[in-house]
């Protein structure tokens, strides 16, 4: 397992996935740099840059960057080996299959986690630059709390999309449907259906929470929206991740992959 980690890490760093992950991670940083340049214009509209951090971390990181990076990388944990027709070379080695899944998942989580952490740190610093070091330090608890939740969310999403990639033929389609359809729609529903999403537990743990009012007919229905308990959310996400990892491992044992003939 320890020997597998550097092997997969080297492969990851050589592939163009790092370029994509870093490029996507740079998006919010560029946004904050642009906002910094536009700060005199924003000041005319009573917008202070450091007050934008909760919204940027919630909308850009939690609702956009996290699922996108997880779909982009997660589905390929097993699926790329199938597409590149290298799975058979991997599984004939005298290594338990579950160790391959765990090592690959650990590499993906470490690299994407590092990209998210660096990106959030830079965005936070740029937005809080006018507060000085002391102000930055005072506000940094929000950064750490947000980062912790994002990493936990990354673990849950990566393992979930990894599981989709191991079991389904079109994992990207299903992943996009889940990340931007199911998660966005159901997480704000009343009743118990929201417990079937990952983002509901992340909302419960994230330092800030924004909810848009339902429009149309749904807007007429009085809805009492509640978030889950913090610890319950934490353990649910950890258990979910473990279950998805186990299912991904299971796929390698029971599923017969058909390699495309070229």
């Amino acid at each position: 397992m320890i020997a597998l980690f550097p092997f997969f890490l080297k492969n990851w760093l050589r592939s163009n996935k790092l370029f994509w992950a870093a490029g996507l991670g740079l998006f919010p940083v560029l946004l904050t740099v642009l906002l910094q340049f536009a700060s005199p214009i924003l000041a005319n509209h009573d917008i202070e840059l450091f007050r934008l951090y909760p919204q940027i971390s919630f909308f850009v990181y939690l609702h956009l960057l996290l699922p996108i990076l997880a779909v982009l990388t997660g589905v390929s944990i097993i699926n790329e080996e199938v597409e590149d027709q290298t799975l058979s070379y991997l599984v004939v080695r005298p290594i338990p299959k579950w160790k391959i899944v765990l090592a690959k998942s650990a590499v993906y989580f470490s690299v994407v986690g590092a990209v998210v952490a660096l990106s959030l740190f830079l965005s936070f610093t740029i937005l809080n630059i006018q507060l000085g070091f002391e102000g930055w330090l005072d506000a940094s608890s929000k950064l750490l709390q947000g980062l912790g939740v994002l990493l936990l969310g990354l673990l849950a999403y990566l393992t979930f999309f990894g599981c989709l990639g191991a079991w389904l033929k079109k994992p990207v389609l299903t992943g996009l449907l889940f990340a931007f359809g199911w998660e966005n729609l159901v997480a704000y529903f009343p009743g118990n259906v929201k417990y079937l999403t990952i983002v509901h537990y992340l909302h419960s743990l994230f330092p800030t929470f924004y909810r848009t009012k339902a429009s149309g007919i749904l807007g007429l229905i009085p809805i009492k929206f509640t978030l889950a308990n913090g610890w319950a959310s934490f353990f649910t996400l950890v258990l979910m991740s473990a279950a998805f990892l186990a299912l991904t491992c299971l796929a390698l044992y029971v599923k017969e992959y058909k390699m495309e003939q070229t």
């Binding site: 996507l24 924003l42 509209h45 009573d46 917008i47 850009v60 931007f180």
Partner: peptide, 20 residues
């Protein structure tokens, strides 16, 4: 994935800077 990223990113900027 980039298609969704571009559409959502531009909409999120609109939401964050809704005062302008």
């Amino acid at each position: 994935i980039l298609f969704f990223a571009i559409l959502m990113f531009s909409d999120i900027i609109r939401k964050i800077l809704s005062r302008i």
